[in-house]
């Protein structure tokens, strides 16, 4: 509970965060930026977990634990994605997502 801040305001922030991330994922061409957009998406959902837990079910802690899990999973996912991107760079000498379209029809 934060004083003078209602759940609606926090949820508005997280929703904004989510759509910013989505916009970034759909429009940016740099793979690293795409990864950062994914982190934004994840963070938005983590905020939702925590806030809803805190404001609506204060006697429970599942939401908080979930958020910790998500952060851990996101970290390992990022490590994996970075390694893929590095290998892709060695192959294509580029991190542009438009250049990696060999898997088409």
């Amino acid at each position: 509970m934060i004083a003078n801040v209602s759940i609606y305001e926090i949820l508005t922030v997280s929703t904004l965060l989510f759509f910013i991330g989505l916009y970034g994922f759909l429009t940016r061409k740099n793979l690293i930026t795409l990864l950062m957009s994914i982190e934004l998406l994840l963070n938005a959902s983590v905020i939702n977990f925590v806030v809803i837990n805190k404001y609506m079910f204060p006697d429970f802690l599942q939401g908080v634990y979930f958020s910790i899990f998500i952060i851990a999973v996101a970290a390992s996912e990022t490590a994996l994605a970075i390694s893929i991107i590095i290998n892709l760079y060695r192959l294509k000498v580029s991190v542009n997502v438009d250049k990696t379209e060999t898997m088409k029809y």
Partner: peptide
């Protein structure tokens, strides 16, 4: 309709969203 399979990850994501 084979053009749908563009191979671009963002197209797939857009279709998904």
């Amino acid at each position: 309709i084979k053009g749908v399979q563009s191979g671009k990850v963002q197209d797939y994501a857009f279709a998904f969203v």
